[in-house]
């Protein structure tokens, strides 16, 4: 039962990723695209955790943790770009 549920939820999250990508491609403004990227990385963490449960491997959590940290830093850098028009001053 659990495996079916895991696959089902993975499909749902995959659908969410597609919707986020639509926003990423359509824009219309730069902040919208940054927001879409931010949501995209959070949702991909969910997908990776689900896959880790499905395959029963611990390794996936390490990558989820890495994505969580790198994702936040990159959102911060992009927000800084929005504010100043430059990342390194």
């Amino acid at each position: 039962m659990l495996d079916t549920v895991l696959l089902m939820v993975s499909v749902i999250v995959g659908l969410a990723l597609v919707l986020n990508s639509i926003r990423l491609l359509r824009g219309p403004s730069t902040p919208d695209r940054i927001l879409a990227l931010d949501t995209l990385y959070i949702n991909s963490i969910a997908l990776i955790v689900l896959l880790g449960l499905y395959f029963g491997s611990d390794m996936y959590f390490e990558s989820a943790l890495l994505i969580a940290m790198l994702g936040f830093v990159s959102t911060a850098a992009l927000a800084k770009y929005l504010l100043r028009g430059d990342i390194i001053e």
């Binding site: 039962m1 659990l2 549920v5 089902m8 749902i12 919707l19």
Partner: peptide, 21 residues
């Protein structure tokens, strides 16, 4: 219990993405 939590989480993520669009 775990399955319902998973489904709820998935639905929330989907609704968030829907709102985004």
């Amino acid at each position: 219990l775990a399955s319902s939590l998973l489904v709820m989480g998935g639905l929330f993520i989907l609704i968030g993405a829907l709102g985004m669009v």
